[in-house]
C-alpha cells in the first residue's frame, strides 16, 4: 500500500512541478503573434498545395497579415475565402477580374528549327545550348518546363507550343516564373483576343523564322476602332483595359498571329466588308467634293 502511495504521489508531484515550470517558461518565451494570423489561417482551405506561391497555408496567412500577399491570394479558396479573409483584415474584398495565364506564342510546329536538339527535355536546360533549338530567339521551344511547373494540369503542349487551359488555370504564376523566354503572362480571363507572338525582329527577319510571326505591318492597329492594339518594337501588343473583344484585328492580321485565328470564310467576309467600307468612303468623299 505504501508503495502505491509513494508511486502515485511522487509522479503527481513531479508532473505538477514540471507543468508549473512549463507554464512559467511559456510566459517568458512568449512569441508575439498577430492575432489575425490564426483567424486568416482558418479562412484558408488548409490543403497546403502551394498554389499561392507561399510555403503552405500558414505561410500565406502570415504574408497576408504582413501585407505582402493580396487578400485574394488563395486560388483554391477563390472568392469565398477572399471575402472571409477581407472581413478579418477589415478591408474591402478585391473585386478584381479573374486572371489566367496565356502563352504568347503560336510557333511550335510553325517555327523553324535551328538543328535537331538532343538533350535534357527541359526548356531551362535547352536555352543554355545556343539559345534553344528554334530559329526564332523569342519563341516557345515546346519542351514543357511550364507543363512540369503547373500543379493544376492547366498547361499542355499542342502542336509544339504550350497552351493554357483557362478552365483549370488558377493564376498562381508558377509558369510565368518558369518560362525562360518569358512568353507567359497573366491576362484577364474575360479577354479572348491575344497576340500570339513576341518576336521583336523586323518583318522580313521574323517571317524567315516562323510562318505565324508578327511582322509589325500595323494592319491591326489601323483596323482597331478602340485604340487597343499597337505595334511596339515590331510586334503587336494589346491593351486589355481597352480591348472590347470585337476580334476585328484578328481578322485583319495577314499572318494569322492574333487569336482567335479567323477561318478562310471569315477572312473573305472581312475583306468584302472592308471593300464595301472603302467604296462607301470614296462615294462620301466624291459627294462632298461634288457639293463643295
Amino acid at each position: 500500500m505504501q508503495n502505491i502511495i509513494y508511486a502515485a504521489a511522487s509522479l503527481s508531484i513531479m508532473g505538477l512541478l514540471f507543468a508549473l515550470l512549463l507554464g512559467f517558461a511559456s510566459k517568458i518565451f512568449a512569441v508575439e503573434v498577430d492575432e489575425r494570423v490564426p483567424k486568416v489561417r482558418d479562412c484558408l482551405p488548409g490543403a497546403n498545395c502551394g498554389g499561392c506561391g507561399y510555403p503552405g497555408c500558414d505561410g500565406l496567412a502570415a504574408a497576408i497579415v504582413a501585407g505582402t500577399a493580396p487578400v485574394n491570394g488563395c486560388p483554391v479558396g477563390g472568392a469565398a475565402a477572399a471575402e472571409k479573409i477581407a472581413a478579418v483584415m477589415g478591408v474591402e474584398p478585391a473585386s478584381g477580374d479573374r486572371m489566367v495565364a496565356h502563352v504568347h506564342c503560336n510557333g511550335g510546329c510553325n517555327a523553324k528549327d535551328k538543328a535537331k536538339y538532343e538533350g535534357l527535355q527541359d526548356c531551362n536546360a535547352a536555352i543554355r545550348v545556343a539559345g534553344g533549338p528554334k530559329e526564332c530567339a523569342f519563341g516557345c521551344m515546346g519542351l514543357g518546363s511550364c507543363v512540369k511547373a503547373c500543379a493544376f494540369d492547366a498547361l499542355h503542349i499542342e502542336n509544339g507550343t504550350a497552351v493554357v487551359d483557362a478552365e483549370k488555370c488558377v493564376a498562381c504564376g508558377k509558369c510565368v516564373a518558369t518560362c525562360p523566354k518569358k512568353l507567359i503572362d497573366l491576362v484577364p480571363a474575360k479577354n479572348v483576343v491575344h497576340v500570339n507572338c513576341m518576336n521583336r525582329d523586323k518583318g522580313p527577319a521574323a517571317m524567315k523564322v516562323c510562318e505565324v510571326a508578327c511582322i509589325g505591318c500595323k494592319m491591326c492597329e489601323k483596323t482597331c476602332k478602340f485604340d487597343a492594339i499597337h505595334v511596339e518594337n515590331n510586334v503587336a501588343k494589346i491593351d486589355y483595359t481597352k480591348c472590347k473583344n470585337c476580334k476585328m484585328c484578328a481578322k485583319a492580321c495577314p499572318k494569322g498571329c492574333i487569336e482567335p485565328v479567323p477561318t478562310a470564310e471569315e477572312k473573305e467576309k472581312f475583306a468584302a466588308m472592308q471593300k464595301a467600307q472603302a467604296e462607301k468612303a470614296k462615294q462620301a468623299a466624291a459627294a462632298k467634293s461634288a457639293d463643295a
Binding site: N3, Y6, A7, S10, L11, M14
Partner: peptide, 18 residues
Amino acid sequence: ILEPLGLQYMRTIAFILV
C-alpha cells in the same frame, strides 16, 4: 526520488516525463 522510495520500476515513465 525513485531509488530512495523503492520505485525503480517507475523509471521509464518518470524519465519520459522529464
